[in-house]
Amino acid sequence: MNVIECDGLNKIRGKVNALHNLSFTIKEDTITGLIGRNGAGKTTLMKVIAGMWRETSGTLRVFNKQPFNNLFVSVNSIYIDDQLRFNSSLTLSEILKEAERFYPNWDTTLALRLFSYFSFNPKDIHENLSKGKKSTFNAIIGLASHCALTMFDEPTTGMDAAVRKDFYRALLKDYLNNPRTILISSHHVDEIEDLIEDIFLIERGEVLAHLPMDEFKEYAIGLTGRTEIVSQWSSNKKVLYQKTNEMNRTFMVVKNEAFPLEQAKRLGIETSSISVSDLAIYLTNQRKEGIDNVFK
């Protein structure tokens, strides 16, 4: 069953076309990593899915329903980001109790155990927490709500390395115990690469890739060799990145399409696999040359 179905989705915010003709589906009980650069449209997409924002055109179905103003979607989904502001009248433990009242699947035990593991003070006020603590608390709400569609938008903002690791581990364990559809966005692909099953690469409001993680790892290949040979050899291939050094050697990233690798080796081209995070950067980088170009 598909939890999210999206066909030709457009979202215009002000004059910006934040989502451009998106078509994709997200299957039930998967963890999808939403990867993209700043302003690529990750947050916009999640907010539209959560029913906070209204789509401009196209169709969007979450649990087979249009999410805007839909209670069914609202009760079965949760959207967690670092902008969550709680009313300062409520203490942290009171917020947890309120969340419990609203979310039918709420896991009280999990919430309280995480709460004490991350050593929160029940009488604290959310507004007074540090950035990292706020994110951690929000993440607890996201996890314990056990919503069929759980969305984390940059959940680790401000967390230190140890807490990040703990959070991802908690997410994975809880997901295994209670499979559900999870969307998680992050700048740090390498952090979630072991966690996510599917990757959803978005840039300028368009889908660049939506693949299972295993396929994505094989998506591209790096070629290193003399510039002329590499260029000639890759002439009809899709080049994602290319860098030439002073020794007239070129490093090139090309889409992996059944290469005659033996032939390449004979020509003196070294092949290498590309890490997921590098690949994400190459894919989402519209400028072929990168930041170095600025300083030339």
């Binding site: 009313n87 300062s88 009248s89 409520l90 203490t91 507004e127």
Partner: peptide
């Protein structure tokens, strides 16, 4: 003020 500064609701 009460929206942003800690004001314990139960006290109110």
């Amino acid at each position: 003020l009460q929206r942003y500064v800690n004001s314990y609701g139960y006290r109110v």
